[in-house]
């Protein structure tokens, strides 16, 4: 794996989101919620969504997890508002291509594009995947999500 990519995995942008995550104030009212858990890692994430006309109008999370999960969950919140389920699916596909190191349109991913560094770190991709997988579970009415089999 590339030493440069490895060294940048914990860049300041990621650490800043993990230290002081946005979207961490619980919603007064949640229309959907799900728990993301990677038991092998010991990562635990709870996601709340508010929905207006089937579009996400509010998002909050609480994580007891590694830096990558916390940062991804925080960065994700900045891109979710206004999206419907199809929009979140499209974002998840784009994010997956990014994790695989494929060049593509990363503008729609915002800060999440920083996780291109994980192309060189397959063992940690499941961490960055967990927040999106948990949001998709909440939208699908599933209570739990995991990215450990991925």
């Amino acid at each position: 794996m590339s030493a440069v990519a490895t060294a940048t995995l914990y860049r300041e942008q990621v650490l800043a989101h993990a230290r002081a995550p946005g979207h961490s104030t619980p919603l007064d009212h949640a229309d959907a919620r799900a728990t993301g858990a990677n038991a092998l890692c010991g990562d635990h994430l709870e996601v709340q969504l508010a929905l207006t006309d089937e579009r996400i109008s509010g998002y909050a999370f609480h994580a007891e997890a590694c830096v990558l999960v916390r940062a991804a969950a925080s960065m994700l919140g900045d891109r979710l508002l206004g999206l419907d389920r199809a929009g979140v699916h499209a974002m998840a596909l784009r994010f997956e291509r990014l994790l695989q190191g494929e060049a593509g349109d990363t503008d729609a991913l915002g800060d999440l594009a920083v996780f291109v560094d994980l192309a060189a770190h397959p063992a940690r991709r499941k961490c960055a995947r967990l927040p999106l997988a948990t949001v998709l579970a909440a939208l699908a009415g599933r209570a739990t999500a995991t990215t450990e089999e991925a």
Partner: peptide, 21 residues
Amino acid sequence: AHAHDLATLLDLEGVAVRSGH
């Protein structure tokens, strides 16, 4: 500090440890 973050950062310094359960 989460164990996996520590293990990744130790790995960057050449130190191989195990993290997890």
